[in-house]
Design a protein around this nucleic acid. Structure first.
Length: 412
RNA sequence: GCGGCUGUAGCUCAGCUGGUAGUAGCGCCAGAUUGUGGUUCUGGAUGUCGCGGGUUCAAACCCCGCCAGCCGCCCCA
């Protein structure tokens, strides 16, 4: 048997209804915030991510699906921000008026070990606001994503924010951190001892309880922010407070992608297991330049892990069938075909039974969970009526064609 | 990439210290006379016990490898 490849999966009904609901909600919120959809290719040149995301990141160094295409190295996109910025530069969107506010929904690919909430093909709902370095934009983006989460039905998430500084102040902080780590490193967990050398910032993200007191005593990046980053971060918070957006400052919040600077944020939820992050985002003021833009194009964006969001959100109401037409005989079947076409144009969901045995048709109607069954036999055809049965109450009545739509009504 | 656990009918699972699987539950199919579902009753189908080797007279049960899933690490969405 041929199965879906490792780390990928089929999304089947009724789950797909939840996905559609989440996406519909997101599109509505994006529209309210004046975002417009962008669709970029799933295939990109490898160099886009090498230069955009950074060779040092796990994503680029070991997780990309890459292959040679007649001499060009192509990859399945592992994330979408670099693609959006590429498109922004390629199509000179900087020439358009105002901030470019773009959103996307689609699959990303990373060759990781799959587990709960982590797949090799996973879906992201994301957005980028390009062309503004104002902290007001940061606050609006955070507000937007929080709005999507709550309107999608996710409750109990925590929005964590931080500033990781810029080219000027981050190196200073890293040096300071390394210095502070030297004497205490031997007392930390083995992972942290390694991180002290490879990536000191990650030590701050350690979850080992025993390490916490020592980590708490380490310097905070917030104390090292420069004269530009510090007031920027303060302003973001002011704007968030103005809007009543709950947030939590987490100075240890470190994002993995190289392009992030200043504001970074993440939302976590308790029901996701080890992969407790439903979304991540941040500011990336230097990304456009590193991708070859001659114009300074500061931006900020986020991406929601749709798989994780769907997993956490309430399933909600299933999609229901409005009407099932049970027919007896070929004349009735032909008649039912025309009727179904008309009612479907009126917006009802309609199924027609081809089984001439009424009992079997009724059994099927019941299993499909239809709201109404219209019975069409010789009697009804002769009378020019339908026997309409309400499957919930069991009541049945004769109804004329012109009254059918009103009698059934619409559910969803 | 590393570690742990798991893998039996469509689904959830049982299967004692190895003797070639279960009346299991749910689901599915067919019946309980003529144009009516949901409850009930009766009958039925379905598995190369994840795959491939090995040990044994004999393996779903033991050993090895592979694959997949889950959990954790790493990392991230």
């Amino acid at each position: 048997m041929i199965r879906a490849v490792k780390g990928t999966r089929d999304l089947l009904p009724p789950d797909t209804a939840v996905w559609n609901r989440v996406e519909k909600t997101a599109r509505e919120v994006f529209r309210a915030y004046n975002y417009h959809e962008i669709r970029t290719p799933i295939l990109e040149e490898e160099q886009l991510f090498v230069r955009g995301v950074g060779t040092e990141t796990d994503i680029v160094s070991k997780e990309m699906y890459a292959f040679d295409d007649h001499g060009t190295r192509l990859v399945l996109r592992p994330e979408n921000t670099a693609s959006v910025i590429r498109a922004y530069i390629e199509h000179r969107l900087d020439q358009k008026p105002g901030i470019q506010k773009l959103y996307y929904i689609g699959p990303m690919f990373r060759r990781e070990r799959p587990q709960k909430g982590r797949y090799r093909q996973f879906f992201q709902i994301g957005a980028e606001a390009i062309g503004s370095d104002s902290p007001f934009t940061d606050a609006e983006v955070i507000e937007l994503v929080a709005e999507i989460l709550s309107r999608a039905g996710l409750s109990g998430f925590h929005m964590l924010i931080n500033s990781v500084g810029c080219k000027e102040c981050r190196p200073v902080f890293v040096a300071k951190l390394k210095e502070a780590l030297q004497p205490v490193a031997p007392q930390l967990c083995t992972d942290c001892q390694r991180r002290t050398e490879t990536n000191p910032l990650r030590v701050l993200d350690c979850k080992v309880p025993e390490d916490q007191p020592l980590i708490d005593a380490l310097p905070s990046i917030l104390d090292s922010l420069c004269g530009i980053c510090a007031p920027h971060f303060a302003a973001v918070q002011t704007y968030l407070q103005d809007r009543g957006i709950p947030y939590e400052i987490k100075p240890r919040l470190v994002r993995g992608l190289d392009y992030y600077m200043r504001t970074t944020f993440e939302a976590v939820h308790g029901n996701l297991g080890a992969q407790n992050s439903v979304l991540g985002g941040g500011r990336y003021d230097g990304l456009a330049e590193s991708l070859g833009s001659k114009v300074h194009s500061p931006g900020i964006g986020f991406s929601i892990g749709e798989d994780r969001l769907v997993m956490t959100v309430d399933a909600g109401e299933p999609e229901v069938l409005d009407l099932f037409v049970a027919t007896m005989g070929n004349a009735a079947l032909r008649h039912a075909g025309s009727l179904a076409k008309e009612l479907r144009r009126d917006g009802l969901s309609v199924e027609v039974s081809t089984d001439a045995k009424l009992k079997r048709a009724m059994e099927l109607a019941n299993k499909l969970g239809t709201r109404y069954v219209a019975i069409l036999g010789e009697d009804e055809i002769a009378a020019g009526e339908y026997s309409l049965k309400n499957m919930l109450t069991g009541e049945q009545e004769r109804v004329k064609r012109e009254d059918l739509l009103q009698r059934i009504g619409k559910k969803n």
